[in-house]
């Protein structure tokens, strides 16, 4: 883009967006997943392996009262 005068920052590729179907179906954009709805079986297996006390230990380790506040 050329709005703000930052010529040094225009040295990279002009358009980072790959030419692929757009989520809005109106032109170029990111690559659409192969199917519309995520298959949940493998993910559920992965989720069940998560230790339910992991967040509690994280809070104790970091002293955070709000897990969502740390990143």
């Amino acid at each position: 883009m050329n709005y703000i005068s930052t010529p040094e920052r225009r040295e990279g590729p002009g358009n980072p967006m790959p030419k692929a179907p757009s989520p809005s179906d109106e032109g170029g954009g990111p690559k659409r997943p192969e199917t519309g709805s995520p298959d949940k079986d493998n993910l559920l297996k992965r989720m069940r392996k998560v230790d339910p006390k992991q967040a509690e230990r994280y809070r104790q380790r970091t002293g955070s009262n709000d897990v969502r506040g740390e990143g």
Binding site: Y3, N15, M17, S22
Partner: peptide, 19 residues
């Protein structure tokens, strides 16, 4: 104010609206 400035801008505007 910014539509039509270039391809990248229009991509952002299009996806922003779609979202």
């Amino acid at each position: 104010h910014l539509a039509g400035a270039d391809e990248e801008t229009d991509w952002i505007l299009r996806e922003w609206a779609a979202t």
